[in-house]
Each structure stands twice: as structure tokens, then as C-alpha cells.
Design a protein around this nucleic acid. Structure first.
Length: 639
RNA sequence: GCCGACGUAGCUCAAUCGGUAGAGCAACUGAUUUGUAAUCAGUAGGUUAGCCGUUCAAGUCGGCUCGUCGGCUCCA
């Protein structure tokens, strides 16, 4: 038998052909049970793959990112096996990949899975794990695979096979269950020790709503018991951070059935936070050379025909209303109005760039099933702006916008977000040169700011490339927030022009951008970011004064007045309650500072300062405390 | 919109097999005057999401509608 050279780390050795990664690792004394697969020249393979050529091998540890993925993928197979054991061979299984934090498998069967079924399936999985069936890989010619899955009556598998370009496909068998799969897998089912099934959900075959709705079971698996426990604990904690729960508890906002789904009622506390955000937002826009606009909520259908929304966006718009025999529509976007302001007179190249900003409230019809607290609603206020720029100005303006976005995210203390640069799709308007120019400008801008980003090739909108910032909620789900979009389309449609140096008409490029996203979504993620405990500068109530008894109320009122005069958001808790009860309530309200006032404070002209979640900080003079608070507010300190 | 689960007092939750809807907190009234996370007592609070049906009897069983939640799809 011939020899092959295998390199592991820096060690190159000869082995006889047909040796497996497991045997190689064993011979080098680096094998352990935590190694579940191997990488051959960077490609993951099974531990028992027979090696036939020179290669570089690396072990894949169960705890590594790749190891976890393999483990979870194998878990999905084991789940499918368990489902078939319980519900019979008539169950059609579709796809079962590993995903972030877990795995799922989609099934097609008559019976609807119940939570009790999940327990049964989990129990059956434990049995399969105990049996410790090896995962056996087999490579088949396509025709044979087709024959196999035809016999098994698995149409989804047949559909997948028909789309695989290769002549052969691989299948994996553990015990009595066989699945079409690229692999690799854990060596045997016994390796799956720490897993849990989490939920059932509907999912269209291939994510297309024209296809059949399948039943998806989500689960998770980890290398260690500890990690699984930690993840389940994280899910519990995430529930506590849920902005919908906190919004109710902290009396920030509500959604009323009679008002309508997806329509937000901002309560005084929530509205105060929004007011602070908006004031800050406006100041920053003035600093950065923006001008403010106010535009109507409705417009003639004619406007939406020019903009193209009538043709391409109608399904997201509320139905038209008839006024004086004409049709009007509620706005889903602000851009056409801003363009009309631009077009209200002749513009010179000297006027550009023009930056129009508006906190514009828009309404979009969203399918009922997708609404989600503040994060997906039907009426929302975009912190919108439209920039009209020349080609020469494009790059600088994009950098300016992105810098602005970045500044906002940092100031609000967001540490969880992803940035995506979406490039030209197949169908597009505008010249190739302009696309190049704009895409490049976006790239230069993110790189200049040293922001980590991913490229979404071809995911741009037809009218121009864009950068999206996706904010992440307590459960790790992404929600589109700030975005900068270049638009080559609307200036054409509206025939937007400026007069250049040459005295001729030119077409400006338009930028759409939001630096927060929408007030609703931004507020929702902000609540989750801080679990409701807003930093001082944002807190709806910044200071709560707690007099110990009636005798201290007069002095407490004086402290209150001083803070109030200095525009600190302060409340005096003069209820007939015990101090401890008042402290408890203030803590539950997540008020940053609690001032206790008793005999000592009155006689010494001080306040006893208690910091939210930290406890007693001791006594301070009233002045001292006021300065501390004012400084912290001014500096927008995040604690 | 689709699949599934859920909807009981302002909030969080009970209510056995279909047999008089109940508790804690909050609210209100009174007492208590308090030193760093809940003072005590009393009062009031309900078309059990809505409508229709089965039944002697429905919070409970069935149907429809609305809403919420988890997903699919879509987006700020």
C-alpha cells in the first residue's frame, strides 16, 4: 500500500493510504474524546474518513465554533430520527441545519407538534444517544440516492438531490435513519450529551410563502452541560430585558387593541425619553449643517405615482382615502415631500450639498404576523434626512453621515450591532460608474471609521447601494436601524436638477439616511440594551427624593425645587409610606439617584445619595449633588 | 398573510371531571411617622377578549372574529 504525507501542526509524517484522521491523531498522541471531526486542508471531514492523498490535518474540538456546528447539525439528525420513531415513516423530513445557538429540522406531517411532543421527542433522542449509533457516511451515485429516497418516500430530499450539480451525493446513516447530508458529523450519537428542544414554529418549504408550510422544531446543543445551562439562563434573562415587558412595567408605552395593532401610545415616561433623544438629535443636526422640514402625513396619489411607490410599494401602503373626488394616501416615506421642497425653486451648485432633516411619521402596512412590540410597527417616526449632493461631494457626505451614525450609536452606548454594506443587485438603475463611485464611497467611509462590516453582495436596493446598521435585541435578533442609501432613481423620476458652473442643468445624487432608524425601534432596542435602567441623561425620572417622615417634607421640597429649577427630572415621593417601601419602588422604577432625607440631612443641609443598584453612597451637600448630576447629564455618562 | 400556542380584576397568576370566578400587588379609606428593597387594617374592583353554538348548567367543550406570543416571509 502506498504512503501519504500528512502534516499536523508543524509535524509532517508518512502514513499508509486509507488511514483515518482519528488514527493519525492517535498515533501522534493528540487524540482525545473532545475531538469530534477533522479539517483536511481547511475542509471539515469525519474522523473516520479514509485519507488517500497528502494533506494538512487539524483536529476539530467539540467546543470550538466548528465543533459546535457539527454537534448541532448531528443533533438535528438525531431529532429527525426520534421524530420518525414516534410519528412513523410517513413523516417527511426537509432540512435540518445548525444555526446560531442551535439547530432546527423542518418536518411535513399531518399531526401538529405540541409542547408535550417535544418532551417525548427529547426522551426518544436520549434513547438514541444512549444506543450510541455510529454516523456512517456513504457516497452514492445520484441515481442510487434518488432510488433510495424514492423508496423512503422523501420528496423534499429528492428535490434537493435534483439540484445538486455533482454526480454523487453523500448520505449519513445512524441506526435506522438515513439522511442526505454533506456532513461531517460526530462519530456516534453518544457524543450528543447536552441538548434541549426549545420550540415549534411554522416555516415555509424553502422560505417561500407559495410553498407548503412545514413544522419546524428548534433546539440547541452545547459541548458542555455548563454552556447549555448558561444559554438557557441567558434566554430566561433575555425575557426580563424584553422591551414589551419593561415597557409595561416602567409605564413607557402601550399598544391598544382598539387603537390598532402596531400603533404605539407613548406614555409620559416613554415620551420623556423620546423628547430627550429628539432634542439631542436636533442639536446634532444643527451642528452638522442640516435644515429641518415639516411635511404632511398625506399626499395626493399623483405624488406617489411620480415617486413610483404607487407601482412598487403599494402593498406596504394603507389604502387610499377619497377627498373631493381625488385620492390621497398616507405616507410610507418622507422622501417625495423633501424632494418637493428642493424643487420649490431653482438650485445652484453653490447651494449643494443640501441636507433636509425631519422627524417624519410614516405608516406602512405590515402583515399582522410580523408585528413585534416597538421593533416592528405600522406607524413610526423616522429620524429621516435627504441629502442632495453633486458627484464630487458624494464621498464626503457619505463619510459625514456615517460618522454621524457612529457618533449616535456610541453616545447611546450601543455595543451590540452589525454593519452591512449592500452592493449592486442584478436589476438596477443608474450608471455603472455612479454605482462604482457610491459603493466605493460607502466602503471608504466605513473603513475610515474603522467600523467592522460585512459585505452583502447583490443585496442593495435597485436604486443604489447602502449601508445598514442592524441593532441587536436581547435575544440576539437583528433589527435594521440606521441606514445610508444612495439613490440614483428618485432624482430621475422627479427630474431633480441644479444649475452647474457651466450654466447647464445637472442631476444631483440623493442620499436617504436615518441615524437612529425610527424612534420606535430605536427606543425598543435602547430599552433592551439597558434592561430599562437608562443612563442618567436619558432616564425619564433622574432623581427621586424620599423624605423619611412628614417632618422632612418641607426640606425635601426645597431640594426638589432646586433640582427642578436646574431642569433635573426629579420626583418627590411624599406618600405616607415607610422609607424602605419608597426605596424599593424607586429601585423598581430604575431611577438612577434616590435621595434620602431625614433629621441628619435637614440639620446638615445635605442629602443622602443612593445610586440605583449600587446602594448608599453617603451624604453630600445639596450643591455637590446637583453639580454631580448636572455634569453627568451634560457628559451623557453611561454607567 | 401562513403554521402553532395563548387571551381570567390595572398588573402577576389560581379556579379538580362542565356545577356559586379567587389570591397577591396596585387603587381607594383609615391608622401608623418610619434611616437605605415591601407597616397594618378595611373597601371597592369581572359581560373570564368578542360573537355564535352544544348543554339543565360553559372561564372550562365546538365554531367564527379580534388581539398577543414563537417562527416563516418582509422591512425603519
Amino acid at each position: 500500500m502506498s504512503e501519504i504525507k500528512i502534516k499536523v501542526k508543524d509535524n509532517e509524517k508518512s502514513f499508509s493510504q486509507g488511514i483515518s484522521p482519528k488514527e493519525v491523531f492517535e498515533s501522534l498522541n493528540i487524540f482525545s474524546r473532545s475531538i469530534i471531526a477533522a479539517k483536511k486542508d481547511g475542509k471539515p471531514i469525519d474522523l473516520n474518513t479514509k485519507l488517500s492523498e497528502d494533506c494538512i490535518l487539524e483536529p476539530i474540538n467539540i467546543g470550538s465554533e466548528e465543533g459546535e456546528e457539527i454537534l448541532r447539525h448531528s443533533a438535528s439528525h438525531i431529532m429527525a430520527q426520534a421524530v420518525i420513531h414516534i410519528f412513523g415513516k410517513d413523516v417527511k423530513y426537509a432540512i435540518g441545519p445548525a444555526i446560531e445557538n442551535g439547530f432546527y429540522y423542518d418536518f411535513d406531517l399531518e399531526h401538529s407538534f405540541t409542547p408535550e411532543d417535544l418532551e417525548k421527542i427529547e426522551a426518544e433522542m436520549r434513547k438514541i444517544v444512549k444506543e450510541n449509533y455510529p454516523f456512517e457516511r456513504k457516497v452514492l451515485p445520484k441515481e442510487e440516492a434518488i432510488k433510495l429516497f424514492t423508496e423512503l418516500n422523501q420528496p423534499y430530499k429528492l428535490e434537493i438531490i435534483s439540484e445538486i450539480p455533482d454526480d454523487t451525493v453523500s448520505i449519513y446513516t445512524q441506526g435506522d435513519f438515513t439522511d442526505l447530508c454533506r456532513g461531517p458529523h460526530i462519530p456516534s450519537t453518544g457524543y450528543l450529551k447536552n441538548f434541549k428542544l426549545l420550540s415549534v414554529a411554522g416555516a415555509y418549504w424553502r422560505g417561500d410563502e407559495k410553498n407548503k408550510m412545514l413544522q419546524r422544531i428548534y433546539g440547541t446543543a452545547f459541548a458542555t452541560k455548563d454552556e447549555l445551562k448558561k444559554y438557557l439562563h441567558f434566554l430566561e434573562e433575555a425575557k426580563k430585558r424584553d422591551h414589551r415587558k419593561l415597557g409595561k412595567e416602567l409605564d413607557l408605552f402601550s399598544i391598544n387593541e382598539n387603537v390598532g395593532p402596531g400603533l404605539i401610545l407613548w406614555h409620559p415616561k416613554g415620551a420623556m425619553v423620546r423628547k430627550v433623544i429628539e432634542d439631542f438629535w436636533k442639536d446634532e443636526h444643527i451642528k452638522r449643517g442640516y435644515q429641518f422640514l415639516y411635511t404632511p402625513h398625506i399626499a395626493r396619489v399623483d405624488l406617489w405615482k411620480i415617486s413610483g411607490h404607487w407601482d412598487f410599494y403599494r402593498e406596504n401602503m394603507f389604502s387610499p382615502m377619497e377627498v373631493d373626488k381625488g385620492l390621497y394616501m398616507v405616507k410610507p416615506m418622507n422622501c417625495p415631500f423633501h424632494i418637493m421642497v428642493y424643487k420649490s425653486k431653482m438650485r445652484s451648485y453653490r447651494d449643494l450639498p443640501i441636507r433636509y432633516a425631519e422627524l417624519g411619521t410614516v405608516y406602512r402596512y405590515e402583515k399582522s404576523g410580523v408585528l413585534h412590540g416597538l421593533l416592528r410597527v405600522r406607524g413610526f417616526t423616522q429620524d429621516d434626512a435627504h441629502l442632495f449632493v453633486t458627484e464630487e461631494q458624494l464621498e464626503d457626505e457619505i463619510i459625514g453621515v456615517l460618522d454621524f451614525t457612529n457618533y449616535m450609536i456610541e453616545t447611546f452606548g450601543f455595543d451590540k450591532y452589525n454593519i452591512y454594506l449592500s452592493t449592486r443587485p442584478e436589476k438596477y438603475v443608474g450608471s455603472l460608474e455612479n454605482w462604482e463611485l457610491a459603493t466605493n464611497a460607502l466602503k471608504v467611509a466605513v473603513e475610515k471609521l474603522e467600523l467592522p462590516y460585512k459585505i452583502d453582495p447583490g443585496e442593495g436596493v435597485f436604486y443604489g447601494p447602502k449601508i445598514d446598521v442592524k441593532l441587536i435585541d436581547a435575544l440576539g435578533r437583528e433589527w435594521q436601524g440606521p441606514t445610508v442609501q444612495v439613490d440614483f432613481n428618485l432624482p430621475e423620476r422627479f427630474d431633480v436638477t441644479y444649475i452647474g458652473k457651466d450654466g447647464k442643468e445637472h442631476r444631483p445624487i440623493m442620499l436617504h439616511r436615518v441615524v437612529l432608524g425610527s424612534m420606535e425601534r430605536f427606543f425598543g432596542t435602547l430599552i433592551e440594551q439597558y434592561a430599562g435602567a437608562f443612563p442618567l441623561w436619558l432616564a425619564p425620572v433622574q432623581v427621586k427624593i424620599v423624605p423619611i417622615s412628614d417632618a422632612h417634607k418641607e426640606y425635601a421640597k426645597k431640594v426638589y425645587d432646586l433640582l427642578f429649577e436646574n431642569r433635573v427630572r426629579v420626583e418627590l415621593d411624599d406618600r405616607n409610606e415607610k422609607m424602605n417601601a419608597k426605596i424599593r419602588d424607586a429601585e423598581k422604577e430604575k431611577v438612577p439617584y434616590i435621595l434620602i432625607i431625614g433629621d441628619r440631612e435637614v440639620s446638615e443641609n445635605t442629602v443622602s445619595v443612593r445610586k440605583r443598584r449600587q446602594g448608599n453612597l453617603g451624604a453630600q451637600s445639596v450643591r455637590e449633588f446637583l453639580n454631580r448630576v448636572l455634569t453627568e447629564i451634560k457628559e451623557k455618562t453611561i454607567d
